[in-house]
Design a protein around this nucleic acid. Sequence first.
DNA 1: GCCGCGCGGTGGGATACGTCACAATGACTG
DNA 2: CAGTCATTGTGACGTATCCCACCGCGCGGC
Lengths: 226, 226
Amino acid sequence: MNTDDVLGKAPLFAALDRESAAALRTSISEVTLSKGQTLFSENETGDRLYVVLEGKIKLSRTAPDGRENLLSVLGPGEMFGELSLFDPRPRTASAIALTDVRLAGLGHDDLRPWLTGRPEVALHLLRALAQRLRRTNDVLADLVFTDVPGRVAKALLDLADRFGQRIDDGIRVHHDLTQEELAQLVGASRETVNKALADFAQRGWLRIEAKAVVILDLERLHNRSR
Amino acid sequence: MNTDDVLGKAPLFAALDRESAAALRTSISEVTLSKGQTLFSENETGDRLYVVLEGKIKLSRTAPDGRENLLSVLGPGEMFGELSLFDPRPRTASAIALTDVRLAGLGHDDLRPWLTGRPEVALHLLRALAQRLRRTNDVLADLVFTDVPGRVAKALLDLADRFGQRIDDGIRVHHDLTQEELAQLVGASRETVNKALADFAQRGWLRIEAKAVVILDLERLHNRSR
DNA sequence: GCCGCGCGGTGGGATACGTCACAATGACTG
DNA sequence: CAGTCATTGTGACGTATCCCACCGCGCGGC
């Protein structure tokens, strides 16, 4: 997929007509990272927003004692790093490439005139943030009410929605996460996540592959997640 | 405090000069609820945003099995119900009065012209949502990394910041929550929260009063929360 | 091609917390 | 003013999950 098509799916650009979008693109800078590289770290000052063009990137926070948790895993078309832009404070998460990744970056100064001149852009961004807030509240409720296997199932289904591809015997979800990272994403220890996955595989609901799973029984996995 | 002073603290109005704010006030409707009354419920369609003028209100979600959790407790100057406005979907939480409460309500149709015409208002709202998202991410991390007593301490300190008043021997935090509600706020059972509070009181860090606590040793309570 | 190390897999305590059960206290109501 | 109901306080018990320890595998580097 080419750059324009991917950008068109991002909320920032969705609101713009073709010419406006083309104009905005002139102030965009492209960044590429290879797997494992850090784009930015917690506590840095940040005044850039990014859209993933290709590949995957993770947003992660580190607790004072060194333990980590993942806020999200982002793929093509998804936006991040905008909080420091709307609310000028240091970054509250680090962004690290899960695969080789290509990004579109847009600075505060480039964006501001677009926001003040085009109210429909601001409205789209408000909507994007509102959706994120809803989503985050859902995750929060899951942490309180759902057990680890349930959260693992939920996370896999979510990843399947965004990254899944149909193959003959199911849906291949190439999440590009180690089990350690998957554990950080659902807020549990690697061991318990491993056991949950093993249990699901045992029941025939999915097959485990390297940094991926193939979902074989969507129905039951979905039931387990509720 | 009078209505204008309270509204001035809300992000929606903070961006406006005096005349603009006065003009916007003409489209505001005032609502009063008595303790225990419901302003709106989950799954209702909602196109109104509210600012608390006086009293306290809680935002709560109900899981399919009936268990509840509180998203937040809001006091004077704080805004809520805006998500359904920026992202037109049913409400994802119910709003219930903790005390007798007076609210300013503003409808979608009234607000939109203000957003499109005044980019600084949209920017302020983006900032408010960005702050909320950061906050929610913090709470999320606490659920993963902090034990129940720690979360209770954190919640009390937060409530103290917003509702605390200095008295001779400490800070009185009149939160207007039952222990059940406090438990729902920190994502734990009532019993565990009760025991944590008893332990804190035992250590002389605080004194328990009806729907309130008096914080006696801010220092240690703060240490316990980290 | 061998070695090392990151990653995946699995078992066995230890424990924080939820659930249950019940008593004591306080607040509202007829 | 009595009685009822909500709220608080506290113990016993079961268990999900964390933490630790260890093993095997495979991949990448030297």
